[in-house]
Simulated scan of single mutants.
Amino acid sequence: MTTPDPRLSINQATIKRANLAAALRATADNGVQAIGLWREPVNEVGLPTAASMLADSGLRFTTHCRGGFFTLDEGRARRAAIDDNRRAIEETATLAAAGADGSTAVLVLVAGGLPEGSRDLAGARECVRDALGELAPDAAAAGVTLAIEPLHPMYVSDRAVVSTLGQALDLAADFDPSVVGVTIDTFHVFWDPQVLDQIARAGREGRIATYQVCDWKTPLAADVLLSRHYPGDGVIDFASLTRAVLDAGYTGDIEVEIFNEDVWATEPGEAVRRTAAGFGAAVSPWLSATIDSA
Rank of each mutant, 00 (worst) to 15 (best):
T27D: 10
T27C: 08
R129T: 10
A282E: 04
N19H: 12
A96F: 02
A111G: 14
V179W: 04
V144E: 10
V106R: 11
L8E: 04
V32G: 07
A98I: 03
S103P: 05
D5M: 09
S9R: 08
D262F: 08
D262Q: 15
A277K: 08
A18D: 14
N19Y: 05
A98M: 10
V42G: 11
A97I: 09
Y155P: 06
N19M: 04
P150A: 09
R129W: 13
C214T: 03
I10D: 08
R273D: 01
R76K: 12
A173N: 06
G99R: 07
T49F: 06
D292Y: 05
G46H: 14
L226G: 00
S9Q: 02
L95D: 04
V161A: 11
L54D: 09
G67T: 02
L226Q: 11
D83G: 06
D84V: 07
A80P: 03
Q212Y: 04
A142H: 07
A281L: 04
M1W: 02
F70G: 09
S118V: 07
P41D: 13
V245F: 01
L246V: 01
D130S: 15
A50T: 07
V189Y: 01
T14L: 10
A96L: 11
G249R: 02
T266M: 11
E255C: 11
G143N: 12
T2C: 09
T164C: 06
A55H: 13
G181C: 04
D83K: 11
L226D: 10
L95K: 12
A13Y: 13
N85I: 04
E116K: 15
R274S: 05
I10C: 05
C65M: 14
I236V: 12
A23N: 13
D215W: 05
A140P: 08
H152R: 12
L246S: 01
D253W: 02
V45G: 06
G31A: 13
P150G: 05
A222I: 02
R273T: 00
V108C: 11
R125D: 14
N260H: 12
L241T: 00
A111D: 08
A147W: 07
W38T: 09
A51E: 12
A93N: 14
A131F: 03
E126L: 14
I35Q: 04
L72H: 11
L135Y: 09
D29W: 07
G252D: 00
I184N: 00
G234M: 03
T62F: 00
K217I: 10
R79I: 03
E116Q: 15
S103N: 08
A122K: 15
D253Q: 12
D233Y: 02
E91H: 13
S52A: 15
C127Q: 15
D101P: 08
F70T: 06
A22P: 13
E134M: 14
L146M: 15
G68H: 02
G75F: 03
A55I: 09
D158A: 11
T2K: 15
A34Q: 13
T49E: 15
A111V: 04
P153I: 02
L47N: 07
S157Y: 11
D29V: 10
E267Y: 01
D174V: 05
R273F: 02
A277I: 06
T104W: 04
L287T: 01
N11K: 09
A281R: 11
V162L: 07
G112S: 08
L132V: 12
I89E: 03
S240V: 01
A18F: 13
G249N: 04
W286F: 09
A100V: 00
P193Q: 03
W191K: 11
R243Q: 01
G99A: 05
I82S: 03
V179Y: 05
G252N: 00
